[in-house]
Nucleic acid binder design. Sequence first.
DNA 1: CGATTATTGATGCAGTTGCATCTATGTAGA
DNA 2: TCTACATAGATGCAACTGCATCAATAATCG
Lengths: 152, 152
Amino acid sequence: MTEKATPSPEAIKAWARLMRVSRQLVESTEDALKKGGLPPLAWYDVLHELAEAGEGGLRPFQLIERTLFAQYNISRLLARLEADGLVEKLPVADDGRGQTIRISTKGRETRRRMWAVYGRSIEELVGAKLSTDELNTVSALLGRLRHPPADD
Amino acid sequence: MTEKATPSPEAIKAWARLMRVSRQLVESTEDALKKGGLPPLAWYDVLHELAEAGEGGLRPFQLIERTLFAQYNISRLLARLEADGLVEKLPVADDGRGQTIRISTKGRETRRRMWAVYGRSIEELVGAKLSTDELNTVSALLGRLRHPPADD
DNA sequence: CGATTATTGATGCAGTTGCATCTATGTAGA
DNA sequence: TCTACATAGATGCAACTGCATCAATAATCG
């Protein structure tokens, strides 16, 4: 019956911190990548998924499931990655509509160089700021905000 | 001497959770606003700052300090807000370069209607998921990731 | 089979962002 | 004062995003 019109001050504060911090971290990292003449974070996300998938590659719709990119976004991002020679698009034997995306050697190399910067950013901006226990606490609590919630 | 090449698994996980959760929350909220025929979150941020500033208004550069928007972003956002009649641009007496931005009545009304949706989003996505203690823990830990760090 | 519906991925268009630069005004220093 | 430099804000252009829709293939069902 009672509609909660406004969240608690604690919820608002947590939300505000989350928004501000995540934007700052992204911005810092994007700056660092740019300074290193490297592609934006979005490219890393895709290259990372593809590197984990190995030689079998992934279908674009699988990338959509694994990342938070919209379909049109993946479509165009893959076009750019292909234009840069970082991925290959292969036809799929049993589905004429689809394609399999496989990371190339150059793609792995780019990913490696991005990680040198990205990883440093994570270490400096997060790893160095909180203890292991605190990091685990953050992960656990944020995991409950995820959809679907993660328990680990 | 020793360069830390890669952050700890705990730091990586916390980072990943932070990135994913913040994107999901933003996306959910933007969807809710759109569904209500309301402007995007960025407008809320600015309207909120201007509403808090009261009749005196704020200079654009003060908005840049308070939010995380780039200068050109604020410039154009304010142009859109003005075009929609949500803010007024007033000349500044002692600085011919500048202007003061003041929220209009319609701006306050729009902010109010946005908050009805935004606040509900915060409550559902965050407030309802964690206890007050947990929310405070999240805020405190994220505060330490902020730049500059916040202790409260 | 043949028609309908669903899925995969691409794309035209309008709106937004990022970058670099520009104009205008203010400040400081010789 | 006159010149150099700094600050406030706007803007042209290219790239990117979001939306809607499209074409092509696959799956379903009578």
